[in-house]
Design a protein around this nucleic acid. Structure first.
Lengths: 150, 150
DNA sequence: AGATATCCTATCTTTTTACTCGGAATTCGA
DNA sequence: TCGAATTCCGAGTAAAAAGATAGGATATCT
């Protein structure tokens, strides 16, 4: 069970936008993020297209353009991002699909299991916002400075 | 984020073996399970080969042979099964890999996120054993009988 | 002996993932 | 107004993973 690069790149990129929002609210270009993360510009472009259609980010076209978050970081959860890029978390079909094969006698015990895993993941990603990640990040920086004297 | 059929078929099949263990301790053949679950015998055979090598099940060859659990249901967790069939749960590389790209400045916040999701999933699957699933199943049957009169 | 199973390895198809490309449209700044 | 920077859009493609199939060897029960 692993996220694809879409989810991983996407969350990192959104975090990048959140950092910029907090700092100076200037648009960030795909090029800059792609360089920072060392990934393909073209590929990231596609991810951003999805995020824009889902209204999580806004684009500013033309020179010196780029992207900004469409909402404050506190109003964007990790689940919002992952749902767009990875599709909804579905451990197994039979969570939603009542009439699938696993609704037969004897298989409900596994269905209950999938639901437990599903709930667990969703509880985490629904509760963590970009703002929370920013806070963690600031906290981490502070700690590092104290410990390493950098 | 979704389990592949390997994980889903595998857990269901192991549950099937657990039911048999509890009932009469007789070996169950691949054919029986494949029919019950309506999936390919050949495919299931491969999954069982992995589970056997991981010593989660034992095989009994020859006519009237089949498979049985290698340990009591209470000693087999869902994580044991999923680790064999899906590989370990890795939300992202950078949980384990300290020197990956995400260890650069600015990306540690996402790493923390992956760890939180990872821990959450693992907590669930490590804590649920086949015995727990059996208990849930018996409980569910009891309730259904009372409610539906079947 | 014959039926029933596992065991082992190889192959094949389909789907998904990850990535690339070319060019149009838009906007800023000089 | 020109040109550079940038998003926007649709198409294409290579590699990997998932899912499934096949055939024959080996073991064991009746």
């Amino acid at each position: 069970m692993k996220l694809s690069t879409k989810g991983r790149y996407g969350v990192k990129a959104m975090f990048e936008l959140a950092l910029s929002t907090a700092l100076n609210d200037e648009p960030v270009s795909i090029k800059m993020i792609a360089e920072k993360q060392n990934i393909s510009e073209y590929y990231l472009e596609q991810l951003f297209a999805s995020l824009r259609k889902a209204k999580l980010i806004k684009s500013i076209r033309g020179a010196q353009g780029g992207y900004v978050l469409a909402k404050p970081p506190k109003d964007i959860t990790v689940a919002d991002i992952l749902n767009v890029l990875e599709g909804p978390v579905e451990i197994s079909d039979c969570i939603s699909d009542e009439d699938s094969s696993c609704s037969r006698s004897g298989y409900c015990a596994t269905r209950l299991l999938w639901i437990k895993i599903y709930d667990s993941v969703n509880q985490v990603i629904n509760s963590i916002t970009l703002q929370d990640m920013l806070n963690d990040y600031y906290e981490m920086q502070k700690t590092n400075i104290l410990q390493r004297g950098e």
